[in-house]
Write a protein that binds this DNA or RNA. Structure first.
Lengths: 196, 196
DNA sequence: ACCTGAACACCGTTCAAGT
DNA sequence: ACCTGAACACCGTTCAAGT
């Protein structure tokens, strides 16, 4: 019997409540705070109760990863050049990723980009590359390069050392600028590879 | 008393023997196989004996990370254009990183690039950017972009899904090509940003 | 200085059992 | 179907004690 519940009453866990609690744990204490046992503790259930709603910890995290990408806003269609909109899309992704610093390193190591939201973003970017006149197979390669660069830079930025933002140690603002400049270089190079 | 040693004899651990055993463990079973307890077991000592030679697991891994970078070969000086040599340097780094797939994701999350070998590579790349005519502060930004791109792509490549190399799933060879193409785009963009 | 025994404070996951 | 108790097989690290 757990506090907050009288005898015989079920915990009433849901897949959604589990995921929500996981996000809270992550927001409060980072990745190290997210253990199955801590998660169970927060929900006032035994650790193994979670396995009725989630296959395992890996599957749980995969869901969290894709959920984050839901926050990326696709640029308004038919406004500005395709390359400009590509820049906006990747910059928005970068910003959203940095709002969840602890998760970022996981995107690169896992297959990661296979959830529905990741696919949506991939399709948008692919369409923009086509519109920009980049032919296959360069477009597929460019897509992968843009994704890797964005996630990689976010992962790099996500764990700033203590004395960041002072002296020659760049802070979050400088790194954001740096990201944008590199993204511009990349898009310039991709455009120049077009057949003219 | 441990097997292989008679009573009263010391284990005779060294910082070097510990690091070597760690590398072996890593090569045989990947990152999950590298635990302090497994490491102690392989060296026939109690787990806490390791702490006489290494501050903690994080410090141990930091050493391993920088050691890997010792394998990166600097391009021969005064041969070819600076940009070509930059390409070679980063491509060599990419190859060396992929020889130790399990460690790659750690480079991005940690400060990582603060060991002696990482500094050496950074200095070489910075000199090449200067020679290529890239002024400050663009050169510093370009350096960071190149590093992040290279490590990021290696991290992405390092954990290939099962069915890789078939159908539309790219294998290691395709990804290596993809990395090189993206590196070229990046260097093109960086060069185009020079004042002419 | 270097190593051990024992312990502390944890992990993820499984299995049989209860309702 | 959903949850618990108990257990399995682990972790990294610290502390006091021995040589």
């Amino acid at each position: 019997m757990q506090p907050g519940r009288t005898a015989g009453q079920r915990a009433g866990l849901t897949r959604e409540t589990v995921l929500r609690a996981a996000r809270e744990l992550l927001a409060e204490g980072g990745l190290t705070a997210l253990s199955m046992r801590a998660l169970a503790g927060r929900l006032d259930v035994a650790p193994n109760a979670l396995y009725s709603h989630v296959a395992n910890k890996t599957a749980l995290i995969d869901d969290l990863l894709d959920d984050v990408l839901a926050g990326v806003e696709a640029p308004a269609p038919d406004t500005g050049a395709p390359v400009t909109r590509l820049h906006q899309l990747m910059a928005s992704t970068y910003t959203v990723l940095l709002a969840h610093p602890d998760l970022v390193p996981l995107y690169l190591s896992r297959q990661g980009a296979r959830g529905p939201h990741a696919q949506r973003l991939g399709n948008i970017a692919a369409a923009l590359l086509r519109r920009a006149g980049v032919p296959e197979p360069a477009a597929s390669e460019a897509l992968r390069v843009l994704i890797v660069y964005t996630i990689g830079f976010a992962a790099f930025t996500s764990h700033l050392p203590e004395g960041a933002g002072t002296e020659h140690q760049p802070g979050a603002a400088e790194l954001h600028d740096n990201f944008g400049r590199g993204l511009g270089w990349l898009l310039t190079g991709i455009q120049r590879s077009r057949p003219s």
